[in-house]
């Protein structure tokens, strides 16, 4: 394999892992707080649609991002109301959100734009364009280091950088702040948190809110940064890959980043293999690579390679004692 190929693969990896990483970190906040979220997919889809629709109408990517994130937050709060206040089944709430998103986005898309559920294509300022980091052009000709800097690291949309900056930020919030300590505590032992006089409900709502914000960013990335407009079911199961990554990373932010990079790389690889077969991998079916993130997660969950144990109070609504 030559260097150019490797560089273009890594470049694609970075682009493809960004939405996974944002959704994965989104899930991390609510699951660490004890709210299972299988509705990441639905929130991303809602946000992708809202962002593309807004960007297409207003011509502003930032307006699109704002509306996308708002819609995702509202969806998250609906899910939160079911899971936290009404003490409903969190998994069923997630299923409902995913289905609602799939139906509503196509339905409204068709109503508003009459293009078979797609939004009009967005371009120019309605889309997040790639950012050239300083000296990227000058360093392009420097062998290896320059190429890595100018092709892989530079030249992505701002959301890619935000996503990767969210990793240290999340690690810091989770492990170095009072909020993070409480968040983790509420996922492990909500009763102890309650006894300490801190509201379990409030903390869980805060977590769900952050989940909504990050899912919104991931959704907007799909339709107005990576893509140029919304298409039916454009998140295509990425929310579930993010969920798999979250489990694979055992609910830790830095591990989540590496898992998302791995899953993003697998995605880049299978896309690449569909167009040009590689000599080494010619006997491996593309479908196997597509299924690999899920297979790896099942194997991990089964405890054959390490053990993934989630937050103890995950999935259980908290009932305050009277």
């Amino acid at each position: 394999m030559d260097l150019n190929f490797l560089i273009s693969m890594l470049d694609a990896t970075l682009r493809l892992s960004t939405p996974l990483l944002l959704a994965c970190l989104a899930g991390l906040y609510s699951e660490r707080a004890g709210v299972f979220d299988i509705g990441l997919e639905g929130k991303m889809l809602m946000a992708a649609f809202a962002a593309a629709a807004t960007a297409a109408v207003t011509g502003s990517a930032w307006a699109g991002l704002f509306v996308g994130m708002s819609v995702s937050v509202l969806t998250a709060l609906l899910q939160g109301a079911a899971a936290i206040s009404l003490k409903g089944n969190q998994l069923i709430a997630g299923v409902a959100i995913n289905m609602l998103a799939a139906g509503l986005t196509t339905f409204l898309g068709q109503q508003w734009f009459r293009q078979g559920g797609r939004t009009p294509p967005v371009s120019g300022d309605a889309r997040f364009s790639s950012i050239q980091l300083p000296f990227a052009a000058e360093l392009r000709n420097v062998p290896v280091v320059g190429e890595i800097y100018s092709v892989i690291i530079s030249g992505h949309s701002i959301l890619v950088y935000v996503a990767f900056l969210m990793v240290p930020l999340t690690a810091w919030i989770l492990f170095r702040t009072r909020f993070g300590l409480r968040l983790r505590a509420v996922g492990e032992n909500p009763k102890a948190v309650d006894t300490a006089g801190i509201s379990v409900r409030r903390l869980r709502y805060q977590a769900v809110l952050i989940t909504g914000l990050l899912c919104g960013m991931a959704g907007a990335y799909f339709s107005i940064a990576q893509g140029a407009g919304f298409g039916n079911n454009m998140t295509a199961g990425k929310g579930f890959i993010a969920l798999a990554a979250l489990i694979f990373a055992k609910w830790r932010p830095v591990a989540a980043m590496f898992t998302c990079l791995l899953f993003g790389f697998l995605d880049a690889l299978q896309i690449r293999l569909q167009s040009t077969p590689l000599p080494v991998l010619s006997d491996v079916p593309v479908q196997l690579i597509q299924a690999l993130p899920y297979i790896l997660t099942v194997v991990l969950l089964a405890g054959f390679i390490g053990k993934a144990v989630g937050p103890k109070a995950g999935g259980v609504p908290y009932t305050k004692e009277r």
């Binding site: 899910q79 109301a81 079911a82 899971a83 009404l86 409903g88 089944n89 969190q90 069923i92 709430a93 299923v95 409902a96 959100i97 289905m99 609602l100």
Partner: peptide
């Protein structure tokens, strides 16, 4: 699903 399941 939402109203009869999660928001029962």
């Amino acid at each position: 699903i939402l109203f009869t399941g999660a928001m029962e």
